[in-house]
Design a protein around this nucleic acid. Sequence first.
RNA 1: CGGGGCGUAGCGCAGUCUGGUAGCGCGUCAGCUUUGGGAGCUGAAAGCCGUGGGUUCAAAUCCCACCGCCCCGACCA
Length: 565
Amino acid sequence: MRWSKTLIPTIKEIPQDAEIASHQLMLRAGLIHKLSGGLYTFLPLGLKALRKIERIVREEMDRAGAIEILMPALQPREIWERTGRYATLRDTMFKILDRQNRHMVLGPTHEEVVTDLVAHEINSYRQLPKTFYQIQAKFRDEIRPRFGLMRAKEFVMKDAYSFDTSWEGVEKSYQAMYDAYVRIFERVGLRTKAVEADSGAMGGSASHEFMVLAESGEDGIVECGDCAYAANTERAERKLTAAAPSEPPPVTRVVTPDCRTIEQLVAFLKVKPELLIKTLIYVVKGQPVAVCIPGHRELNEHKLARALGGDVQMADAATVEKVTGAPLGFAGPVGLTIPVYADTELASGQASIAGANVADTHLLNVRLGRDAQVAAWHDLVICREGDLCPRCGQPMREKRGIEVGHVFKLGVKYSQALDAMYLDETGNRQTLIMGCYGIGVTRTLQAVIEQSHDANGIVWPASVAPFEVAVLPLNVNHAETMRVAEELVAALEAQGLAVLMDDRDERPGFKFKDADLIGFPVRAVVSERSLAEGKIEIKQRSATDKKMVPLAEAAGFIAGLIRES
RNA sequence: CGGGGCGUAGCGCAGUCUGGUAGCGCGUCAGCUUUGGGAGCUGAAAGCCGUGGGUUCAAAUCCCACCGCCCCGACCA
């Protein structure tokens, strides 16, 4: 391919809209073009890279025994109502009316559609197990699209769904996908880490996320420095240090004018935040509850939801004032009539300063269990740096990650709702057990760039590079240079390589900068200077040294470099 | 949806406070020179100053409303 015949709009300046390196580079290298928030056109280079990732995904899915299908993105709303997910996902779904005024949605994911398919087409244990997958655009009305392709309203996902007759079977299907994911991310050149994760709205019993470690990642993860434990901070648990239980003297009041936040209280009372009991009012299944956690901690709403078995929502100011009888900022567990749930760390009694449910007043020497009844103790806080590993007790490290893949053991949530049954060996109708597995393909593309770039631009792994080689004839008006460049391109293409020739009439420095920005794994320069020696100058993007290689050997040499990488 | 910021030429920005002929850099087009790390000179094209309304002799500038974009939070591949 010749540069002049395609569209590669590189830009020198850093786009103002883009915050993180990979987003900036995708725009600067001319991979994508923004239509509007969260919606992008893939330009030739971006599309080529995307296709290469898709191809790797297909190869590994096929190798793992998954069957490719293609389901409609446009779906009747009714099928979502049957699983109860229209209620939970309605805000993230794009909703449309057809000309008959039938309610349709654009698929944000495909559990419903695939389960409906299997309910109709699979009847016998003889046809099982099966795993189906597709690579397709998904639509989600994200609250906040972000960072280019990282969180878009329309994005390409590889989604797979397994159907088994037993939990042992699910285990196998899950493991097969897990292993395939490890290979896929390895092949696209990403270093990923599988972490234990929360199943969230998807439901199900267990799940792992594949994380690309990156400062710009939207997820927090903690990992043990000693053993293999790693988990999303939403999910992660911690081991508590065995603190000696403390039995404070009776409760006393203290006046704390205008101290509504932990920071204000810490400053006013001159105590450590660890000694405070933070009391939050939540609404669960329509009922207000109080949640107590240590003052230096953040509540983990996922854990709270799991512990209380329902959607949780922070109470509004009016509810808080009604429940506590005090203005916002002075809630405490003592004397409340609503159930109080407390984080297990508070069981030691170390923290003892709490709101008094009276304006400008706090209580000292509060002992949960003694001065206030606790409905239940749970692990309720977000894990962070320094917390102890729940398995081995060693301190954990906190990192940021980009979630590029997620695997779930789902169970029977969808198959039950949509009657996906089969006849077993004894002729009994049984419910299928499912798993589901997603890879954000467009996100993976950007994650590769996020993890693989330098000050000059992208450094593509050859496996996903839009072109493996750039051939730069430095003077396009020099006939011999062009003749040699064209021969080199032909020879490289004969080796099965994708080659871009920069045939623009530009100065050498200009072409070098663009080649670095786009990040071709190998750059071959044809110039009058090198031609005088009968040689081609070859440089790898990831290296600093250049090699002069005789004309006749150049194509073979480059093919060798690509193969090794 | 809550909080913050920003909309002026294809891109990056100044001009807005204090109303008075729309500016700079990059890019684009033409010409000459240049030719191994984003060239120089000369000339040219290109702007409903986000949209609608209001105030005023006069609005990019002041007021109101709306729209869009970016960042922080909830959501998620």
